[in-house]
C-alpha cells in the first residue's frame, strides 16, 4: 500500500516536472545562453576585422567613457519615456470605454481589432507613415487645406512619437483593458454608495485598482520604444542617434561586435532595472 502511494507520488512529481520543463529550458536556451555569450563577447578583441577571443576591458572602457554613448543613452531614455507616457495617456480613455461602456460583444470585436495591426509588418506600417509625413505628403497637404503651413514632419520628434505610438498603442490598450475588466466591480458600487462622484470614483477607486495593468502597459511601451531601430531610422532619419542606431553603426564600421555587445548589455541592464522598479511599484500595497 505504502509503495503504491509512493509510486503515485513519484509519478505525480514526474508529471509536474515534465510540464514545468519547457520554461527553464526556454529561459536557458533563449535568454541565459545568449546573455552569457553576449557578456563573453564584450571582452573579445577585433583583429583585422575578425573577432578574436580575448579577455580585455578596453571595449567597456571605450564605450563607457565615450560622450556620444551617454548622449545616445540619455536621448533613448527620454524618447522611450515620452512614448511610454504618450501611449499610456492615449490608451486610457480607450481602455475605460472598452471596459465600462461597451457591450461584451462590441468589446470582443474592438479588442480583436486592436490585434489586427500586428498582422502587418511594423516596417511596412512605418514606411506608410513616411508617405503621410514627408515633404508634400498627405498631412502637409491636409494642413495646407485648412490654412496651416507646415514643413515636412519627417525626421522630427513628432514623427518619432507617431512611429513609437504606432508600435505600442494597441498593446497598451489591450493590457489596460484586461486589467480594467478584471477589476472588482463591487469596489465601484461601494464608492458610489459612499457618495463619491464619477470623477472621484475614477481617480480614487478605478485607476488605483487598475494600477498593475496601467504600469505594465507603460513598461511594455518603454521596453519596445527603448530598443526600437525602425522608427528612429525611417521616421527620425537617423538624426536622433538612439542606442539601437549606435549598435548598428558600431558593427557597420570596423566590425566592432564586442563594443556593440557592451552597448547591448547596458541596454539590457537598464531595461531589467526599469522592469524591476515598475513591477515593484505596480504591485506595491498602497
Amino acid at each position: 500500500m505504502t509503495s503504491l502511494l509512493q509510486a503515485r507520488r513519484l509519478s505525480k512529481t514526474a508529471y509536474s516536472a515534465l510540464w514545468s520543463l519547457p520554461l527553464p529550458v526556454w529561459l536557458a536556451g533563449f535568454f541565459l545562453g545568449p546573455m552569457v555569450l553576449l557578456i563573453w563577447l564584450s571582452f573579445w578583441d577585433v583583429k583585422n576585422f575578425l573577432l578574436t577571443p580575448d579577455f580585455q576591458l578596453e571595449n567597456w572602457q571605450k564605450i563607457l567613457t565615450a560622450g556620444y554613448f551617454w548622449s545616445a543613452y540619455a536621448r533613448t531614455a527620454v524618447i522611450a519615456a515620452s512614448a511610454s507616457v504618450l501611449a499610456t495617456l492615449a490608451a486610457l480613455p480607450c481602455a475605460l470605454a472598452i471596459s465600462f461602456f461597451l457591450s461584451p460583444r462590441a468589446r470582443m470585436v474592438l479588442l480583436g481589432l486592436f490585434v489586427v495591426p500586428f498582422f502587418t509588418s511594423y516596417l511596412v506600417r512605418i514606411y506608410s507613415w513616411q508617405i503621410y509625413l514627408t515633404e508634400n505628403g498627405i498631412v502637409m497637404k491636409l494642413m495646407a487645406a485648412i490654412g496651416i503651413e507646415t514643413g515636412s514632419l519627417l525626421n522630427t520628434p513628432l514623427a518619432l512619437m507617431v512611429g513609437l505610438v504606432t508600435l505600442t498603442l494597441p498593446l497598451v490598450i489591450v493590457i489596460q483593458a484586461i486589467s480594467l475588466l478584471s477589476l472588482d466591480r463591487t469596489l465601484i458600487d461601494a464608492a458610489y454608495n459612499l457618495g463619491c462622484g464619477p470623477r472621484r470614483v475614477l481617480f480614487a477607486t478605478v485607476l488605483p485598482a487598475a494600477r498593475p495593468g496601467i504600469v505594465l502597459g507603460a513598461l511594455f511601451a518603454f521596453i519596445f520604444s527603448f530598443g526600437d531601430f525602425v522608427t528612429a531610422t525611417y521616421l527620425g532619419g537617423g538624426k536622433f542617434t538612439t542606442l539601437s542606431i549606435l549598435i548598428a553603426d558600431t558593427v557597420k564600421s570596423g566590425q566592432q561586435w564586442p563594443r556593440a555587445a557592451v552597448v547591448a548589455l547596458m541596454m539590457i541592464v537598464t531595461l531589467l532595472l526599469t522592469a524591476l522598479a515598475s513591477i515593484t511599484y505596480a504591485y506595491r500595497r498602497s
Binding site: 565615450a66 560622450g67 556620444y68 548622449s71 537617423g238 542617434t241 553603426d249 570596423g254
Partner: peptide
C-alpha cells in the same frame, strides 16, 4: 568612425 557617431549624436 567614433567622430561620425559623435557628429550624429
Amino acid at each position: 568612425n567614433d567622430f561620425w557617431s559623435a557628429y550624429k549624436s
